[in-house]
Nucleic acid binder design. Structure first.
Lengths: 224, 224
DNA sequence: TACGAGTCTATACCGAGTATACTTTGATAT
DNA sequence: ATATCAAAGTATACTCGGTATAGACTCGTA
């Protein structure tokens, strides 16, 4: 499914990836240390010992140096939907994904440990929040398409878009409320609980909105 | 509720508002004509016959010249919630608001006539879409607070935030699907229908998420 | 009429992002 | 091994949104 068969692909490629990694590392360190808005691209280039243009070669936008795991999130969700068991609806599969993320403290759901600093840094910058919202928006469209295709409906199905919108909104709120608890009280277990509680309520609601569609009815037993 | 008691407030104030209006008019015309990203602030200043700094005095961000009715939306929603009848829940009040917006073709719900060009212009610009998302995000927080206060709960109530998130997500999707219909088929009646249909489904779902809370239970008869 | 505050303006600056043309370096074919 | 081509890196110059600052003008008021 993913071509990671590349331990040592090529010298040129290796160097390119090394450069990219150097930039990413320097950027991450500087962002965490001084805040996203306080770090200039020139400083990053300097720290990574490359030219300014090289930075933009690898990362078209400054924000891309911060959020560089968008694809992994999509892969995770895609796998959950397409690899779900028979008799499990797409929405039920996503709820199970939420459970699993909490269980194994998946860093793609940054509610634990060092990830909290990452979130705090993001929330401190208007530019990063804007980028996060853009990713949510784009992801909602992708999710709608994934949902529609998983039950053989056209990608433009309004029901799929409504469902995707409700699911992403739920996830966002649940994450944010969970983060607040983790941040204020330092209680990661409580954060996970409130996250899952809100996911449950929101997904249950989303299932109602999609009642009568294949998105929530799967096989003999109805799990939503 | 709004202090519009100002037909001729003051010469200085009059001049300031005139300058602001000149800038706004020039900007709107240029944006519609050439697209938001194709118009520079210098061109706007030139067209309005003011200095560049004067533009930024009145509109801190370029995007503010495009979206200048945020307050009206908040006012409309606030009035709907706080002025609702006894026995009508906050969520039911918002659904009624949606009905009314469609009925009287409220320009704050730009699904009709010339407003379509406005939306098309906004959708053609990444910067404007980003600003729109930011407004949605801010409004979700405001709505959560309004909902919470309207039923005497603390502003941080997680249920209120989840509910607000679901309502805004529903409104967004409903609007977008409605816009697509209006834009592709030129059928404003059909656009209104699909908008209301999705609002209904989404709000019904939101009511499920808020089941057991005062947000959806009001008085003897339960309208959600 | 003098003063002070609010408005407008010019100038200089910063930082993200683009365009372009040039150099270097690694892969490949002869 | 060497010529060759493309990919990667680089320097330079530019555009544009936005900020800082200080000065000019104008209106309301003491």
């Amino acid at each position: 499914m993913q071509d990671q068969a590349s331990p040592t692909p090529d010298r040129r490629t290796r160097k390119r990836l090394a450069t990219r990694q150097a930039i990413s590392d320097s950027a991450t360190r500087l962002f965490m240390e001084h805040g996203f808005d306080q770090v200039t691209v020139d400083q990053i280039a300097e720290a990574a010992d490359v030219g300014r243009m090289t930075v933009f070669n690898h990362f078209p936008r400054k924000e891309d140096m911060f959020f560089d795991r968008e694809d992994e999130v999509r892969g995770l969700v895609s796998a959950a939907i397409h690899g779900r068991d028979d008799g499990t609806s797409p929405v039920a599969a996503l709820r199970l994904l939420a459970d699993r993320c909490i269980e194994d403290r998946n860093p793609l759901l940054p509610l634990f440990g060092p990830s909290l600093r990452f979130v705090a840094t993001a929330l401190a910058s208007e530019a990063l929040k804007a980028r996060a919202r853009q990713m949510c928006s784009a992801f909602t469209r992708v999710l709608a398409t994934m949902l529609a295709e998983s039950v053989d409906r056209p990608a433009e199905d309004p029901d799929a878009h409504l469902l995707a919108g409700l699911l992403v909104a739920t996830w966002s709120v649940a994450f944010f409320e969970g983060y607040n608890v983790a941040d204020r009280h330092g209680d990661t277990a409580a954060a996970g609980r409130i996250f899952l509680r809100l996911i449950d309520r929101g997904f249950q609601a989303a299932a109602v909105a999609a009642a009568g569609t294949p998105y929530v009815e799967a096989g003999p037993q109805r799990g939503f």
